[in-house]
Amino acid sequence: MLGDCILLIISIIINSLGNALTVSLNLGSALWTASAVNMSHLFNMNLGNILLLEGIAVILSNAMLLHQFDWHRMLGNVLFMVPFSYLVSGIAQLLTVFHIQQLSLVPSVILDIIGVMMIGCGISIYQRINLILHPNDDFMQILRFRYLHGNAVTASLVAFIIPITIIAICFVIQRHLWAVNIGTIVALLFQGTFIALSDRYIFRKLKHQRL
């Protein structure tokens, strides 16, 4: 149990850093993060607050998919989501001190893709531990194991329909996009693959638990 808790903390840090890196570079974030960034501009709200509100909405969606209010699971979602939301926002602000936005295109793109890979790695670890999950990743996990026969790639693509819709609505209203670029395309096409590869090669003895 202690080992699972340590791995959970490590995975949250990896995922938070990956998300913050993509936000700071503005070359394309993972789709859920990109949708939150666009909503933060639309409503002129702090990114951490938007991530929190978005997470609450997904918690309710998860309950609908499960056909029940699993209060233990929902509490775990909240316990994960609150520190994670503000950790991403805080690290993103901290990274601006290093002026990474001023890097030339090639190293910026490489760093952005590394950020997306870190997100996939973090998700893989804490989904396998399955103590508590971010509601977005719980959403993908529910789709993956209850509806899509364990296929991480298909589950990621289906789960992305919601943030893509949010981004599209924000674009129609604002006529501008933030945090949507090459990294977003990489996340859309390969995040499920990054999760599946991390399942296989990162902490290989760690299997999916508590499903």
Rank of each mutant, 00 (worst) to 15 (best):
L2C: 14
I6G: 10
I10V: 14
S11H: 02
I14M: 06
I14T: 10
G18D: 02
G18A: 08
N19H: 13
N19K: 09
V23I: 07
V23T: 07
V23L: 05
N26H: 06
L27W: 14
L27S: 12
L27I: 11
G28W: 05
A30S: 15
W32R: 08
S35L: 10
V37I: 07
M39E: 04
M39H: 12
N44A: 10
N44G: 14
M45Q: 08
I50G: 00
I50M: 04
L52M: 11
L52E: 05
G55K: 07
N62E: 05
N62Q: 05
A63P: 06
M64V: 15
L66P: 05
H67R: 15
H72I: 13
H72N: 13
L79P: 08
P83E: 02
P83N: 04
F84M: 08
F84C: 02
F84Q: 01
S85A: 15
Y86H: 12
Y86I: 04
L87W: 14
V88S: 08
V88C: 05
S89W: 15
I91F: 10
I91Q: 00
I91P: 02
A92W: 07
Q93T: 11
V97W: 14
L103S: 07
S104W: 12
P107S: 03
P107A: 13
L111E: 04
D112V: 13
D112K: 11
I113Q: 01
I114P: 00
M117K: 04
M118P: 01
I119K: 08
C121N: 05
I123W: 01
I123M: 03
I123S: 01
S124P: 03
S124I: 00
S124V: 01
I125P: 02
I125H: 03
I125N: 01
Y126N: 01
I129K: 03
N130E: 02
N130S: 02
L131K: 10
P135V: 01
P135Y: 08
P135T: 07
D137T: 05
D137I: 01
F139V: 00
F139L: 00
M140G: 11
R146N: 05
R146C: 15
Y147K: 01
Y147S: 10
G150N: 03
G150C: 03
G150L: 04
N151D: 09
V153H: 02
V153N: 09
T154Q: 15
L157P: 07
V158W: 04
I162N: 05
P163L: 04
P163R: 08
I164R: 06
I164N: 11
I166P: 02
I166M: 04
I166H: 02
I167E: 03
I173L: 11
R175Q: 13
A179T: 06
I182V: 13
G183D: 01
G183C: 11
A187Y: 09
L188P: 05
L188D: 06
L188V: 10
L188Y: 13
L189A: 14
G192N: 04
A196I: 00
L197S: 10
S198A: 10
D199Y: 08
D199H: 06
R200E: 09
F203L: 12
R204S: 14
R204E: 15
R204I: 11
K205H: 14
L206N: 03
K207A: 11
K207P: 07
H208K: 12
Q209Y: 12
R210W: 14
R210K: 12
